[in-house]
Simulated assay, not measured.
Amino acid sequence: MPVYLDCNATTPVESEVLEVITRYLAEEYGNAGSRTHEFGVRAKQAVERAREQVAAVVAARRDDVIFTNGATESNNIVLLGLAGSTEGATRRHIVSTAIEHKAVLEPLEHLMKRGFEVTLIHPGASGRVDAQAVLDAVRPDTLLVSVMHANNETGVVQPVEAIAAGLPNEVWLHVDAAQTFGKLIPPLQNPRIDLISVSAHKIFGPKGIGALISRRRNGQRAPVSPLMFGGGQERGVRPGTQAVHLIAGFGMAAELALRDHVEREAACLRFRDGVLTATSQLGGQINGDQDHCLPHVLNVSLPGLNSEAAMVTLKGVLALSNGSACTSTSYDPSHVLVAMGLDRDRIDSALRLSWCHLTPAVDWPHVCELLRRMM
């Protein structure tokens, strides 16, 4: 099997997480909404325990956590739900960035068709937006500022703390933290961040479960209207039968992330040394500000080497990508690298490598030899 270097797309599942998932599938299979017997009571307890585990990562309250099927759904609930609220009827301007995930950009396109104005801030070659540029774009009619915490393609961490510090009180702040929840702990504990979108499968949990964390600020939560109705689960924001096994697995993954994030980061930094050595030997050009970058991600362009051809050559050796897994069927150039102003040759030769504390060693001399034959 090739060495898996696509952890930004999804991570492997930790063994402790898998044990929890299996238990709530095979043994504790009750419906959390069944209150008349012990199976339902224990399922409900598992859901509430997981809510506490997820909330603890960002220093939130248990009732701030709304379970969804992942960050994409959470992003949609925030953008479309807030736009559909009473506040959204009177304030119809949103500030975001040109490097957001499509799960933010596409809902914003939908809102523009409904008459909302959207200002997208571009990052420049660093891949990091300027916090002051975001704040300067805020107007009296601004409803929401939505900025991802770290870019999924480059790993560049965005200045969400500086943005949070400068925002007017009446503007809601949303952070897509799919790539940083359970990895960068203190920034997401900032109480000025009103809404946080997260996915379990980015932190060694199961696919198909995530959360929207909606904090109270000055006694109020952002007035997000539900997109679906029926059942009343998750405070009515996301109704439907709760996937207890996935929720419990997510909770365990969150607990492990909070407990082990220091050791995990150290392992990722050690692995990074080998990646940097290998790519430098190939004349690689790193894309994105490395002074503000996740320790487990590298976006690098290899001059004279098409990324699609490189991935075919390395098939069976490395499993990696050249962009977001959510748009992997598209052959359009990366909207992130385009927004950074990179030229087409550099974009076409860009590869994304993302690893984790579970990633085994790579035979980098062999990898370099395979790629040199193509140059």
Rank of each mutant, 00 (worst) to 15 (best):
L246E: 09
H245V: 04
Q285F: 03
E255P: 05
L108R: 12
H122G: 00
D141Q: 13
Q285G: 01
L351N: 02
S15H: 09
A267M: 14
A133W: 01
N218S: 02
E106G: 01
I347W: 09
A50P: 02
L144R: 00
L353F: 15
K113H: 10
N75Y: 10
G236F: 00
Q45H: 02
G84E: 05
M311L: 15
L256P: 03
A150W: 04
L302N: 06
A55L: 11
S334P: 09
V275Y: 05
E38R: 13
Y4A: 07
D363T: 12
E28M: 02
R192H: 14
R62P: 14
Y331C: 12
N169R: 15
L269G: 05
E73W: 03
F39W: 06
D141G: 03
I209P: 01
E14M: 12
H245M: 04
R344C: 01
E308S: 01
R42V: 11
G236C: 04
G115N: 06
G232L: 07
S146V: 10
A266V: 08
R49N: 08
L25F: 07
A178P: 07
H122W: 05
T329M: 13
I347Q: 13
E308Q: 11
N151T: 08
G274Y: 10
D345R: 07
V300Y: 13
E87M: 11
E265M: 04
K315C: 05
C268Y: 02
N218K: 08
V134D: 14
A257M: 09
T277S: 06
K102R: 08
N322F: 08
L227N: 09
I77L: 15
R235P: 04
N76T: 10
P12T: 09
R352H: 08
F250S: 03
L351R: 06
H37F: 13
G155L: 03
V145R: 03
A103S: 15
A278K: 03
Q158F: 08
V134A: 00
V41K: 14
P360C: 10
Y29C: 04
D348L: 13
T10Y: 14
E16C: 11
L305F: 07
H101W: 02
L82G: 12
A9T: 14
E19K: 14
G251S: 06
E117F: 02
A319V: 01
E27S: 12
N31E: 10
Y24W: 15
P223K: 01
G208I: 12
L143Q: 12
L143P: 06
V3E: 05
A248N: 10
T154C: 05
G288Q: 08
S126R: 06
S225P: 00
A177Q: 11
H37S: 13
M1W: 06
M374A: 02
Y29M: 05
I185T: 01
F116M: 00
R61F: 03
V160D: 04
A55P: 11
G30N: 05
S225Q: 14
R344E: 13
G219Y: 12
V41G: 07
N218T: 01
T327C: 00
G182D: 14
E263C: 00
T11C: 08
A257H: 06
A361M: 05
G274H: 15
G70N: 03
R192Q: 15
L79A: 10
V156S: 00
L227S: 05
V237H: 10
A267W: 01
M1L: 07
D273N: 05
V95E: 13
V362P: 09
E16D: 10
I203V: 13
A83Y: 11
M148L: 14
V104N: 09
V160R: 04
G341M: 06
S328D: 12
C368Y: 02
A56R: 15
